[in-house]
Amino acid sequence: MPAERNSRLVRRISGLAVLVCAAAGWLSCTQRGLAQTSLEYAVKAAFLLNFTKFVEWPPSAFPGPNAPVAICILGTNPFGQTLDEIVQGEQAGSRALIVRKLDHPPASQGCQVVFIAGSRKDVPKTLRSLGPGVLTVGEGESFLREGGIVAFVIENRRVRFDINRTAAQNADLKLSSQLLTVARTVEK
């Protein structure tokens, strides 16, 4: 039941959002360190899932017409089990969603979303190794300069993201205008 899934997903996101908002408030004062980290990645996990709904991949990005949308975590996994739980049972259009954890950049058509944790050092090299048809998501403002498409940033204790449209075009991806409007900044 898609509706059920939807409602579950949204509830989850909104619940997280509330927590984020709350973290931005008085609660965060006492439990900042731990709580902030886990909440931050819970939100980011939900965002990762939602990105798949605002992005259109070219058919060449998939190995087959029924191939799932693979969200790949390259290197360090900051999400723990959160991402798996969120993605569980979700779909991106007609395609299923799976989460893969990789140590090395994937082969062509292996991943449609690649999350590169901010702790990774060889970001430019990694990005260059990835072919077209991959939505690259990273952390920090420098990620876009290095050739990434979407970069999570923290602003006013809230999770936001920036978008590099040129990179998206280079990667042969179409981004929904809704995604662009929600983005903190959009670079050309």
Partner: peptide, 18 residues
């Protein structure tokens, strides 16, 4: 509603207000 899907997806109140 269509214009606020992004706002809803990313829980963006500002965008929703807009």
């Amino acid at each position: 509603g269509g214009n606020s899907t992004g706002a809803l997806a990313f829980d963006d109140q500002d965008e929703a207000h807009r």
